[in-house]
Design a protein around this nucleic acid. Structure first.
Lengths: 146, 146
DNA sequence: CTGCAACCTGAAGTTCACTTCAACTCAAGG
DNA sequence: CCTTGAGTTGAAGTGAACTTCAGGTTGCAG
């Protein structure tokens, strides 16, 4: 089996055929066609798909994913080095998000300690009342002091 | 200032007035009304709002948030203990998600090492080819071996 | 007491990420 | 060859989470 049908892709990636067509319309993956106009995928498209799914889990929009994938070569099969560059970039994104969530967790733990989640004391909230200068929302989380 | 207007709430929480009305329709927050039918919020509704925003960041749906908030008392102002119970539950959710993302990061790091993200070797992908028995998708991540 | 920014409502619109539908064509095993 | 499961299309539908709009009301500073 040289090229994969849309059904093969769906089975192997866990992404529905309708989603595969959607991703193609949106420029996230590519396919060739048979003489009878059916899609055929190169095996390495599965890698793109895996990447897309991972990004989704991390809460990244398809638009961002498309931009990221645009870094891969158009005219040749991506090499290990291509993927390595992409992965490195994403590891950083991922780490940022993990940091945010850890901060969230620690603050929430602190809140359990003080039993509050209160406006006066809890840095989970801490809006204009005390940090007006830094803008809206839970500033301690989004933009903590160094 | 005893009660807050919708504008005050928006300013202090960073949530738009339209979203506040929406949350109220959806049963996530509550307000009283003036004789002239304008919303007035008790200060502790800001706590609910903070909780909602935090949950959103973690990728939880409003429906889940509503269910969680339903654990708070209807007829009295929530106590520290009420919030503490809720927070403890959420810390667990948060921790699960952090664990998932750390796994993701570690796998991605491994992938940079091997330069692959490849079907044959990379456990970021690993679909039916090798783990058919466990279902679809990147099984090593969603459901890793003990 | 007046002006006007802020508030009200219901309905419709928006974006994202898909799925579903109808009507049709293709490909491959018996 | 023929059947039938898999694939094709464009258009419309879905659900979450809001925003925008039109047309009207309220509340407070001057």
């Amino acid at each position: 089996m040289e090229l994969l049908t849309i059904g093969d892709m769906a089975a192997r990636s866990g992404v529905a055929p309708s989603a595969l067509r959607y991703y193609e319309r949106e420029g996230l993956i590519r396919s060739t066609r048979t003489s009878g106009n059916q899609r055929r995928y190169e095996r390495h498209e599965l890698r793109r798909l895996a990447f897309i799914r991972i990004a989704q889990q991390v809460g990244v929009s398809l638009e961002e994913v498309r931009d990221a994938l645009a870094a891969l070569p158009e005219n040749r099969t991506p090499t290990k080095a291509d993927w390595a560059r992409l992965s490195a970039r994403w590891r950083r994104k991922l780490e940022e998000r993990i940091t945010l969530m850890e901060r969230l967790r620690d603050q929430l733990t602190g809140c359990i300690g003080c039993g509050c989640l209160s406006l006066q004391r809890c840095n989970l909230i801490n809006p204009k009342d005390r940090l007006a200068a830094r803008g809206e929302g839970p500033q301690m989380l989004l933009n903590p002091p160094a």
